[in-house]
């Protein structure tokens, strides 16, 4: 049931965020997911672009103390508020790029191809990459402003983000699937972009939400986690250790499964998809909470609502 709700919300969000601008919908410059401004007519701008540019690290020191600085602060507050409101649910329920990745996963499941499993050690090694990308996203524009980096490193993360090349395809625009031969910097960045895009598509086919392992937006969410109003919470006393939550996790997290003492939940790699809550058949063990109140709690009935065998793939 929860999975179906997520599917519906994801698709609605995709339509709004990808095409909303064409109908006069624009949610501003601080959308906490990959609502890509490279998509003409998008319904809101991914905050990462603004953060690298005109409402963030792209501002000069002088601009920071002026009106533009205030504006940057405004959008930061808007982002923090929006990110806190839904927490990781932005990733699991709203992000259009996440939905594209999920489509690849549904295709893989339909074909019965086994999933690529990353060991815990591998995941631990890959997890810091998102923070490096966040640092790159912040540092790059500063270095450009200081003249230490070529101006074409402007929007340094957007230049290599697979969302830039792949999302515009859904409005018929293929111009970002190109190598940009203008100079060596644009060429290098576009080569990295094409390689990242190709690897993302291939990787996301075999491994659910592979890109999210590296997503700097997730890094931002993790930094803001103490403010999150929507959380996934575990009551370890009710856990029977079956591992269903771990198997259902889009990110192959086993932290939730192995937790025995604290009410941990959506930290680290969690994308707030609620799959763990739906898969857990121990009543009340896992819950999706908002402001401390339970929105959905695990139960045998909810778990049995999942189609597990014969019939169409689980949503």
């Amino acid at each position: 049931m929860l999975g179906n709700v997520r599917l519906a919300v994801q698709h609605l969000s995709f339509v709004i965020l990808m095409y909303g601008g064409r109908f006069g919908v624009h949610l501003g410059s601080a959308v906490p997911c990959f609502s890509c401004p490279y998509v003409y007519g998008c319904g809101g701008n991914c905050y990462l672009m603004g953060l690298q540019g005109y409402i963030g690290f792209g501002l000069t020191w002088a601009q920071l103390w002026g009106y533009q600085g205030l504006r940057a602060l405004f959008w930061l507050v808007v982002f923090a508020a929006a990110a806190s409101l839904l927490g990781k649910l932005w990733c699991g329920f709203v992000c259009p790029f996440g939905l594209v990745s999920d489509w690849l996963t549904y295709l893989r499941r339909f074909l019965g191809v086994a999933s690529l499993r990353l060991s815990r050690a591998a995941r631990a090694r890959l997890a810091p990459v998102k923070y490096f990308l966040l640092a790159w996203l912040a540092l790059g524009p500063v270095l450009v402003n200081l003249g230490l980096l070529h101006p074409d490193f402007y929007l340094p993360f957007c230049q290599i983000c697979p969302g830039k090349s792949l999302l515009p395809l859904f409005e018929g625009e293929a111009k970002y699937l190109t190598l940009e031969l203008t100079n060596s910097v644009t060429l290098s960045l576009s080569v990295v972009l094409m390689a990242a895009s190709g690897l993302t598509v291939a990787g996301s086919f075999f491994r659910e939400r592979l890109f999210c392992v590296f997503c700097p937006m997730l890094a931002l969410f993790n930094l803001l986690r103490p403010l999150a109003l929507a959380r996934i919470v575990k009551d370890p006393g009710l856990c029977q250790g079956c591992g269903a939550c771990s198997r259902s996790c889009m990110m192959d997290m086993d932290e939730l499964w192995l937790e025995r003492e604290h009410d941990s939940g959506d930290d680290g790699e969690c994308l707030g998809c609620g799959g763990c809550v739906e898969a857990c058949s121990s009543r009340g063990c896992l819950s999706l909470k908002f402001l401390g109140g339970t929105v959905v709690g695990s139960s045998p009935e909810l778990a049995r609502g999942l189609r597990t065998g014969g019939g169409r793939a689980r949503g």
Partner: peptide
């Protein structure tokens, strides 16, 4: 802004990466 974009080359790198990554897996 657009003159130096080479679609065939870009697609070539894209598919090379995609097939290479998928092939490795």
């Amino acid at each position: 802004r657009e003159a130096r974009r080479d679609l065939p080359l870009g697609l070539g790198v894209f598919f090379l990466a995609m097939l290479g990554g998928g092939g490795l897996i």
